[in-house]
């Protein structure tokens, strides 16, 4: 083998080392604070821009559905919040994994700050779904597989929020919440495939990664824009909360210098 081409195992080892360095570099709370402070205005203003355009287009300019009438306009909120509810929980599980494997202080803080925002997204998804369901199905709620699995996701978020605050030793709270976050990941594929596995009142997904969208382009574009706006808004909220949490940790460290580290971070 020529000297210039490293053996395969060496290359993969270098990649693993680089990935590890990348995570360690950005997992530093102080470094994250400075980077997020710099990008926060861009994320926030982009979120406002895309949400305003997406919802404005959806509310005033997109056509009504032939079957659902104007209630289809609720979709421009319901679908982005549904996606964020699942994506937020996936992020929570990743933070849980980082907490259990590497005990990263930033992962602990991120999990603590993502959970309330994710819970609000899930609550919004359930509320807007009910408000869309009443005129279409004649009822606000049915114990349908999709609706029930999203309700379970909401309870998982509430459980995570409660567990973090339930222990006097913060590290134990983070670990218990991380275990719950990882165990609860099983709910995500159930939510995704519930409309395929069971005969549900909830309609099947209109946008998937594998098939062409089944909704009109005049509805698809405002939906994509509001999804982008809501996603950026979610990131902006988490960044702001996380920056506040990092500062609060610093304040506690200054106020109680002799306190155990586990109860500060």
């Amino acid at each position: 083998m020529p000297d210039s081409i490293p053996p395969r195992s060496c290359t993969s080892h270098t990649m693993i080392t680089r990935t590890r360095h990348f995570f360690h570099y950005y997992a530093n709370p102080g470094r994250f604070y400075h980077i997020s402070t710099r990008i926060q205005p861009y994320v926030t203003y982009s979120a406002l821009f895309f949400t305003f355009i997406g919802l404005g287009w959806g509310l005033f300019f997109s056509p009504p559905d032939w079957q659902q009438g104007d209630t289809v306009r609720i979709m421009y909120i319901h679908v982005p919040t549904a996606i964020l509810a699942s994506a937020g929980y996936a992020a929570l599980a990743l933070c849980g994994l980082s907490t259990l494997v590497w005990q990263h202080p930033l992962a602990n803080l991120a999990a603590m700050e993502i959970a309330p925002v994710g819970a609000c997204a899930t609550a919004l998804c359930l509320i807007t779904g009910s408000l869309r369901g009443k005129p279409m199905w004649g009822t606000y709620w049915v114990w349908d597989a999709r609706l029930t699995s999203v309700l379970i996701l909401f309870f998982l978020y509430l459980g995570h929020i409660s567990l973090i605050r339930a222990f006097e030793d913060k590290q134990r709270g983070y670990q218990a919440a991380a275990i719950l976050a990882l165990a609860g990941v099983i709910d995500l594929p159930i939510i995704k495939f519930s409309v395929d596995w069971w005969n549900t009142l909830h309609q099947p997904d209109s946008i998937t990664l594998t098939r062409a969208p089944t909704i009109s382009r005049s509805m698809l574009w405002p939906l994509i824009l509001s999804m982008l706006g809501f996603s950026l808004g979610f990131c902006a909220l988490v960044f702001a909360r996380l920056r506040a949490a990092i500062l609060e940790v610093r304040i506690r460290a200054l106020l109680f210098p002799s306190h155990r580290r586990s109860n500060i971070v």
Partner: peptide, 13 residues
Amino acid sequence: THPVFIIASYGIT
């Protein structure tokens, strides 16, 4: 059609 449901959804959000 159904303005109450639409206004409620956008308002709560």
